[in-house]
């Protein structure tokens, strides 16, 4: 009788360890996939290209509002002030979320002939594009 009881206890422990190991393994895999999906590098590339294309397609005068709530919250957690997340120098857009050098992408509208005023409104990036006089 005692021997039977001991046998049952061993099977349960082994199964439990097996299940826990499987769960740990799967959760590590899911965490890896999630970190790749919402990584700051991918977001920097996405937003800089999006902003460059918005400026490329724009007409003057135009007001563009882009929701960047996700980017701003990630930047805050990385210690990047939200005013510095998007910078436009000449005709190059830089988006910095990770706190490193960010991602640059250029647009072909001539920044010497058009004004691109950038400011923030709640969690939106606002670009006012006008012709320089």
């Amino acid at each position: 009788m005692l021997k039977l009881r001991d046998k049952n206890g061993q099977i349960l422990t082994e199964n439990l360890i097996f299940i826990i190991l499987n769960l740990v393994f799967l959760s590590i895999l899911i965490l890896f996939i999630y970190s790749k999906m919402s990584g700051p590098a991918l977001m920097e590339e996405q937003y800089s290209k999006q902003i460059a294309l918005l400026v490329d397609y724009s007409k003057t005068p135009m007001l563009i509002k882009l929701d960047m709530e996700e980017a701003f919250s990630k930047a805050k957690s990385n210690g990047v002030p939200i005013e510095n997340v998007v910078t436009i120098t000449n005709n190059v857009v830089n988006v910095n979320i990770a706190g490193r050098k960010g991602y640059d992408y250029s647009f072909f509208r001539d920044a010497k002939q058009i004004n691109i005023d950038k400011y923030l409104e709640e969690n939106k990036l606002v670009l006012r594009i006008t012709t320089k006089e």
Binding site: N91, V92, Y105, S106, F108, R109, D110, Q113
Partner: peptide, 13 residues
Amino acid sequence: FSYCKLTFETEKY
């Protein structure tokens, strides 16, 4: 192209 307010300068990459 300048008349059309276009420039083809790119970032330093």
